[in-house]
Design a protein around this nucleic acid. Structure first.
Lengths: 149, 149
DNA sequence: ACCGTTTACTTGTTGCGTCAACCAAACGTA
DNA sequence: TACGTTTGGTTGACGCAACAAGTAAACGGT
């Protein structure tokens, strides 16, 4: 790799070494939520239907089903979501936000957005934001197609 | 957040959700190494001295000392590194690559580089690589300065 | 010389994610 | 209807990382 390439690569590794940890810390400290738990709650909140199938939720959050199942178990124990058997397909189960879950989420959003702004969005120019969106889209496309994945 | 901002942000989150996992899988499959183990071995290999203090190694790899200690314990058990008490400072211990460790590392490098190329570097234009290097540098600078870190 | 503090690591515990195994319901086919 | 397969989801065991506590040596003041 030449200098240009390794600069980009090393920079990227540094970011995904540090940024997720920073986001997790902030959410954990301010709301007692993991970043992934936050994503799960947000996805449920933003869903057009009030409930979502576990499989759909797993796909939307880019998680494996076992992982989602564990996390939902914890979230349910904390009263933030509910799970109930799906009436149409008795294999399936539907997850939905409880009132507490909705409140918890709404409470945690502003701090998270602020952190995202502070660490990334506000630090970049509009041109850089466009470039970043394009670059990340390219990489995720590669990841999706990659046979080793 | 407007569309431009959220596109960049969501893209970034998707990447650091998927990319580290993909790298770990590739290394694990082809060399039986964690990405972090690979980083540890590389750091030792690239070090000007043949040995490194645990603290220095922890700093270089952006890891906590406990984490490094555990990982070095495993690597030592597998014969890839050695640890010996530091003669100058009897509190300290020095880590160094063994012959096996060096061989294992050299064996695993090409596949890792190839993966980095395939998933990221080769997918981007030279302009995008420059932009990415600049963007990541900006973000890591923010992260370093951030009080919540 | 003595005592508290800081530095350098290690060790034990807890929590999360993955993988593999499992169960149950639905589907397809004969 | 009966049987094999696929789909949907949960559970348990194992590995890795974070956190906290512990040990041991060096340092710094008195």
């Amino acid at each position: 790799m030449n200098d240009q390439e390794s600069a980009a690569w090393l920079g990227l590794t540094a970011v995904f070494q540090l940024l997720p940890a920073a986001l997790d810390r902030q959410l954990q400290r301010d709301s007692g939520l993991t970043h992934f738990e936050f994503v799960v709650l947000s996805t449920l909140q933003l869903s057009p239907e009030p409930t979502m199938r576990m499989t759909a939720l797993a796909e939307a959050t880019v998680a494996t089903l076992p992982r989602l199942s564990h996390v939902c178990g914890r979230l349910e124990k904390r009263g933030l979501i509910e799970r109930s058997p799906c009436p149409e397909d008795r294999r399936a189960t539907n997850a939905s936000l409880t009132g507490d879950g909705r409140r918890e989420l709404i409470h945690s959003v502003p701090g998270h957005i602020a952190t995202a702004r502070r660490l990334v969005v506000d630090a970049l120019t509009p041109e850089q934001l466009d470039a970043l969106a394009e670059i990340t889209a390219t990489i995720t496309a590669r990841l999706a197609k990659d046979p080793t994945t």
